Amino acid sequence: MDFEYLSPVDDDLVQEISSINPQTLAGMVKFHTSTGGVPDLEDVKMALVGVKENRLAEEGEDEFLNFSSVRRCFYGLFPGNWHLNLADLGDIEKGETVEDTYFALQTLVGELLKQGVIPIILGGSQDLIYAQYRGYDRREQMVNLVNIDSRFDLGDAENPISNHSYVSKIIVNKPYNLFNYSNLGYQTYFNSQDEIELMERLFFDAYRLGEVTANVKTVEPVMRDANLVGLDLGSINAAAIGGNYQISPNGFDGKQICALARYAGISDKVSSFGIYEYAANYPVAGNMLIAQMIWYFIEGVNYRTNENTISAKNEFIKYQVPIDDEILVFFKSPVSGRWWIEIPFISNSNTKLKRHTLLPCNHEDYLEACNQVIPERWYKTKRKNEL
């Protein structure tokens, strides 16, 4: 693969990191350096890459985008009981045009997915999710996108793409790979009623901030069904992150956002993770929180149970619940205790949907079904499957 659009990690930073305690993450990461070039990825499970692109931010371009502070915080952390190799591929610099940057990120994500490497993207403006998503174009599957954000970022497909208007481009632009879009943590006053109603008409999932913060575990099944996850740093409250131009007094706190990052990591399906809307003026505490989010994502990946396999599903415990004219079929893993619900497969529909016949859910969904209440996510997924 051609990595010519990747710039190495800063030489001075690499030298500084190399002097850190070797038992920290600094001692278990392969770096892209100016002298050694891009590291061999054969035995690498995850790769960190920065993307210095934010020209389409509606709040204005940040010309001083640099991820050295996050790297310094991250590599000073001690790993858990991990057995995964990591790489730092350096940064994708701004292309001559934004489309050039998109192409570089799309190509990199696609190649890493092909090699079985999970890209961890640290980026500028959140429209970069569009390029992250396009990295899946050559994979013969439909894609579930989860966005941790205070805004839906749907926008108008007729208007130019921006960091608050990119999901509509994902929906309408070919190839059509999007099966489901889920938003975690939206705040109603940041979204128009038109967008809220459109989310409902498209049978997409949306969880208000208060709903998620009251019990973060409720969205674990949503994350378990995701292929790619994007996280807007603006979804974190000002007290926890600080320093950004779009901070809000309301949002996730540090503990909650790290829990969501860990859920993304522990999902067997999540194959790329992006953190966006980074700004150069974050204080040390903000950079440390981002470093810890990455740490929790990696820990989640380390503790995956690989239950997204046929052999694992053969061991599941099956429960049948009759409701009206339906018989809902639930499955429970005897290993992790996690739950799934079966979605009827429409034989003449898009064959890419075959893998969606089991939808992650939680124990509460099973209990509600026993009380004759059909789970909302089951209904939405079934309707999308029929369209």
Rank of each mutant, 00 (worst) to 15 (best):
M1E: 09
P8C: 07
D12C: 11
L13T: 12
S19P: 02
S19I: 10
M28I: 15
V29L: 02
K30Y: 13
G36P: 09
G37P: 09
D43Q: 11
K45H: 14
V49H: 05
N54F: 01
E63T: 13
E63I: 12
V70T: 15
F74N: 00
N81M: 08
L86E: 04
L89T: 04
V98A: 03
L112R: 00
L112W: 02
K114E: 10
G116V: 11
Y130P: 04
Y130R: 07
Y133W: 07
Y133G: 10
D137N: 15
R139L: 13
L154W: 00
L154Y: 04
A157F: 11
E158R: 12
N163D: 13
L178T: 07
L198N: 01
L202M: 12
A206G: 11
L209R: 02
G210Y: 05
G210W: 06
E220V: 09
L228T: 13
D232Q: 07
L233G: 02
N237P: 07
N237H: 11
A240I: 05
G243S: 03
N244H: 08
G251A: 12
G251D: 07
D253W: 06
R262D: 05
A291L: 02
F297P: 01
F297C: 08
N308S: 12
N308R: 09
V321N: 06
P322F: 03
P322G: 07
V329C: 08
V335N: 09
R338D: 15
I343H: 00
H356I: 11
L358G: 06
E364C: 06
Y366D: 04
L367N: 12
Y379V: 15
